[in-house]
Design a binder for these strands. Structure first.
Lengths: 349, 349
DNA sequence: GGTAATTTCTATAACGTTATAGTTTTGCCA
DNA sequence: TGGCAAAACTATAACGTTATAGAAATTACC
């Protein structure tokens, strides 16, 4: 272990003062030179930059933050409750990648089932511990978004709301996914659709349900929503619910799932009753990873590009922080189904 | 949007000064009272705390950080290259949960394939942008760990090294897993083991290979290591490698995989050649999630508890930062196999 | 009752940065 | 050469906190 601290003042981290002493300029001049202020001479800037480089100067973030109020932090606020497979790590990596080379650090602030989802947002805004927030799992009427809009706090979301407020978001067009899924199932001659939808509180669940149910109506198919489980329920719960449902009444011959887990569990549930995918029923599911086509190649898959979402919201929140208009205020991923029988189905008009 | 800033000084965030003015004490007194210093009277403390509460005082992190050098940040340094399913989000959630109620924020700092893995660690240590670091995917001789040990920087890791340095870590006993897996396969009469191991550079790969190969030797089984792919390769690559291998020579009748993806791909590859799991071959795999038993119930699964790991490393790094000895310097998860035929197999001696 | 010891409180400076207002230097033109 | 504007630089204060040394008030002791 190397000795550190006041014993070795020569090894202390260089500050503006160090550069000032090395170059003979004042601390203020050094500061302004390093941020390329217009009232500093070219030769001065050159010498200051050279000294900074040579000494290995790195800005002290705490000092900047204290003085200017700018934290250079972007906070990602996540629910731990519904971990949609590895959505989360993909999102984090994509955000981090977009933040590369910028001054921003990424603080991850999950909230827990026993907490008000507003808590972390309120904390960040009130303690000014980040310059901007990224949220996911938006709700139709989202108190967190209302809070940030009211305070004029920069943010971007993965998912939309119903609130009629204009803010940067990225979303997957779950309504089109619902329509496409029903269309693909109908093409296989299916008539009775059973849907394991995401939790109703989530905005994207509404979209998906709307799309699927309307398309069913338009095509004269039966549409039924699983009422005891969602696509975020435990696999065991979904499996039980599906096998219960498949054991009775006019049983569904088609299923739609909002998640990878939901799809796997639904297949297991149906198989438990002796039904086979591709024969007795078909299934369409969304997923953000690359599993289902191996699990059962017959599953019709709509793949969500979470990396694209992460990249978008990161850029959008930086634009909001810096008061720039983002390249694009909102973006919507147009779904595509990959279907091992039919190939690719695109929702693009 | 509400107006803010200097226009509404009464709505400004309260500081120690605000409390000092409200109570009539000096700023220094308020500061000491709030941290329960022994030289402040009880009555004073009570009044200061009451005022702080009433005014909604929150410490300014930037000021504390500038003054004391303590960042109250823990950095999680991750490789984006090998995303072992949703290891990552589980780890993050578990760390965040352990950090709840403490002053620590979690900064996630992934590094990218084109970077030296030492870069983020060096950056954090040199700019003092965190009080401690959590690392995963340790290597037998890990330059990052050497760097932190040399600097006396607090850290904890998920995974061990071969370096003979003593530091807090959590690990899964991959060697025992390897032994158990071979034993379970041998119990089913299998003779020729083919292993899709994690990348050799990772410490845990060595352990797993050692365990499996030694157990094979002890039992007189053939042991063969996949040489063109690892359990972190793409599913497609693994599937191809396995189907190539199964098509020729004295083909394996048993497989071991280090990951969920590896197991799924291996099964697909074998099935492509017409072999069925449970009949022509058996497979044991590690996984951190809950997928494989649905994918093919015949797979023998060793489940790694990533949440426990996250909780441990978070506590350990906090202890290191605060100069406390951790409750436990190191911890090792003893593997257990769940096997739908045999039930649970435990490695505990 | 006077001094010492103890308890409680406070003034001050400092952490590293930047905004502001101001000073010095240089250049230009009459 | 004097005057003035522009360019280049600097001194100072401030952001909110805490460590330090010391001051004031209280208690203990003989």
């Amino acid at each position: 272990m190397t000795e550190r601290g006041p014993h070795h003042p020569e090894s202390a981290r260089p500050t503006l003062k160090t550069i000032a002493e090395a170059t003979g300029f004042a601390v203020a001049t050094v500061s302004r030179a390093l941020k390329d202020a217009p009232d500093i001479g070219e030769e001065t800037k050159r010498r200051v930059r050279e000294a900074a480089e040579r000494l290995g100067y790195r800005q002290n973030r705490a000092a900047v933050r204290l003085r200017t109020g700018k934290t250079n932090v972007i906070a990602l606020v996540l629910s731990t409750e519904t971990d949609v497979m590895n959505h989360t790590s993909k999102l984090i990596y994509a955000i981090a990648e977009a933040l590369r080379g910028t001054a921003y650090h990424l603080v991850v602030m999950p909230f827990f089932p026993d907490q008000d989802p507003l808590d972390p947002v309120r904390y960040i805004v009130e303690t000014e511990s980040a310059d901007g927030i990224i949220l996911n799992q938006t709700q139709p009427d989202d108190s967190r978004i209302r809070f940030m809009v009211d305070r004029g706090f920069p943010f971007a979301t993965h998912g939309r709301t119903n609130m009629g407020v204009d803010h940067p978001y990225f979303d997957y067009d779950n309504e089109s996914f619902g329509r496409l899924a029903v269309a693909a199932l109908a093409d296989r001659g299916r008539k009775r659709v059973y849907m394991i939808a995401p939790p109703r509180a989530q905005m994207y669940a509404r979209h998906m349900i709307t799309g699927a149910s309307q398309e069913c109506a338009a095509r004269g198919l039966l549409f039924e929503l699983a009422d005891t489980v969602t696509s975020d329920s435990s696999a065991q719960a979904i499996e039980n619910a599906v096998s219960l449902r498949m054991a009775q009444g006019p049983r569904p011959d088609a299923m739609i799932s909002g998640s990878t887990t939901g799809a796997m569990a639904a297949v297991s549930g149906a198989e438990r009753c002796g039904f086979r995918i591709g024969h007795d029923f078909d299934l369409a599911s969304k997923e953000a990873i690359d599993f289902l086509h191996r699990f059962r190649p017959e599953i019709i898959v709509g793949r969500e590009d979470v990396a694209r979402a992460g990249n978008f919201v990161a850029r959008a929140v930086m634009a909001a922080i810096e008061g720039r208009a983002p390249e694009l205020a909102q973006d919507l991923q147009i779904p595509t189904l990959s279907d091992f029988k039919t190939g690719i189905i695109d929702a693009r008009p």
